[in-house]
Design a protein around this nucleic acid. Sequence first.
DNA 1: TTGTACGCGTTATCAT
DNA 2: ATGATAACGCGTACAA
Lengths: 358, 358
Amino acid sequence: MPRARKPSLMDVAREAGVSIATVSRALSQPDLLRADTLERVRAVASRLGYRPDRAARALASGRSNTIGVVIPTLNSPIFADSLQEMQRTLSDAGYQLLVASHEYDPAAEFAAVDRLLAHGIDGLVLVGGTRPDATWQLVVSSGVPVVQMWCGHPDYACVGVDNRRAGRLVASHLLSLGHQRIAVITGPLRHNDRQRERLQGIKQALGEAGLALSAGCHTEQPLSVPGGRLGCSILLELADRPTAIIGTVDVIAIGAIVECRARGLPVPQQMSVAGIDNIELSAHVAPSLTTVDIPSMKIGSEAAHRVLALTTGTASRDHVLLPIELVERYSTARPSSPSGDADRRNRADDGRTDRSKH
Amino acid sequence: MPRARKPSLMDVAREAGVSIATVSRALSQPDLLRADTLERVRAVASRLGYRPDRAARALASGRSNTIGVVIPTLNSPIFADSLQEMQRTLSDAGYQLLVASHEYDPAAEFAAVDRLLAHGIDGLVLVGGTRPDATWQLVVSSGVPVVQMWCGHPDYACVGVDNRRAGRLVASHLLSLGHQRIAVITGPLRHNDRQRERLQGIKQALGEAGLALSAGCHTEQPLSVPGGRLGCSILLELADRPTAIIGTVDVIAIGAIVECRARGLPVPQQMSVAGIDNIELSAHVAPSLTTVDIPSMKIGSEAAHRVLALTTGTASRDHVLLPIELVERYSTARPSSPSGDADRRNRADDGRTDRSKH
DNA sequence: TTGTACGCGTTATCAT
DNA sequence: ATGATAACGCGTACAA
């Protein structure tokens, strides 16, 4: 006895002896109905297993209860964390999450935004603020509220962090330890304002200390552990070998640690390594990684709240900067310290995991 | 000069001097039109910046060009990998990906499936095959084609791997090295058939070798690095300390390695550790992790192809098992070998990264 | 080859 | 408090 078709408003209305308008109201504005009719309609609806059709609802109301998000890659710890929280926040609010990724290709991002908008999303979440004018125009002309994550263009709402300050924090930490020769491994700078800002922050801190980042002391590598290893091996070849390496993301910094260890170069005794992000793993590598905590989960949930606020009522386009802080662990130490007190540190985080957010 | 409203079929039709039906056909069935009218309509459409309304299209056609996927967690390397590939495959086919997660809570999964179905998805992708009857009924009665990933219920299509064999592969490897006391750290078994099957495979291999997994030699822990550390520390307290530990997922196995190192217990000299999954990181921890390669990205893309096939035309409900294989690295060795040839191995993967899939 | 007209399941605006 | 009915934008017989 297969039901030929899913029950519609009309079916419920007929069965309950009311009009379809009443049934519709029973779901969207229950207050307007008399208690007994409301009760009756609801009973029939659940008996028939009525489910409102989102497509029809979207067509009639102009709203789809759907939020689109476009991120560089899905398989990155930080984006995955924020996605997870976005998803949770949105579904709690009865919204669905439409996901697209572009792997740092602006054209792919454009296409993704285009598809998402065509789909009739009620709000859009993007990562970063640097993209071709064409993409921004697409967004603006659609009239769909947009929120940026991590960092963003000043004209549009943003939930993020001060990436420049993140860079300053790590650099200052190393400087205060006494390091003079500091090298940096970033991800590709093109199409990635987070990376650029972090690097700028590092340069700024070095500058204030009267130092400069010499040309050879910066290398761009893929945002991965192998990328970090490769970058590290390049820096280790330098005639004037640095005493500290900053990876502008933890994944890269971890790669640097791995490479140092593989070469028998003890971290932090012979080489300090620091990152930015504070992903879960960073507390567990050996030695545990000094880094800057970026609240990626909070970014996700806050961004979600922000879009929702923008869709209903007119929230502001302000930029919200979430707090960040240096997390000092055991991958950094004073340069070439001849004293023996450092070897205690050449181990995985021994009990100090409470300093982790996870 | 803000456009009051997005252009519709009617606008294009009027401007091009044809009927809306013609415009509609120009987009969905171009073959039915004369070349010149087709050309004209297309010109007008692009000039006006016409974008078909998916909601209206969905309502009229009954198809939404949308695929829903429900996974346990977004911030897990393996699921993120497969999601990434699903997303790519689907968007190449003009489909959108609707994502939901439930964090291993069956009720949350039910709710997610419910919302997704109400949204009018054309296909559904789930992870694993164990879930309450109510959830399956929801899916079945909706008539929406469904594909399972990783492993699944025999009644429905599935793209996955033989998780039992994965368990057998690691266990056999350790047995062949001469280990007799093998302990296992799994994730929570409840609501997770992947974990159960892998454990079963391990038990089976042990059984065939005349061994049994004693009660104390198995512990369930969270699917995380800290979970692995905790599980490891419990196993190390055992009176009859094991010589090898299997983590049924790499994340847990890595946690075990970290814990061993933190305690000064050399891996693999004093303790062999192996995992299952072959996530990117596993090739880069020290020592690099012996594991079983699970093609998570391929699972994602194949699952995507499968749902698409099921939506159009009637594909089969077969189970596809993708190939898996043992990846032997440096975290496993013969038990308590007194010979000194093992210390070479106590380092990160030194150049053998080519054995990685990443 | 192209046009007409109806239906898809809701929401929203009027009436009552 | 409830009912009738017009949009919403598109697909698709059916007609021409």
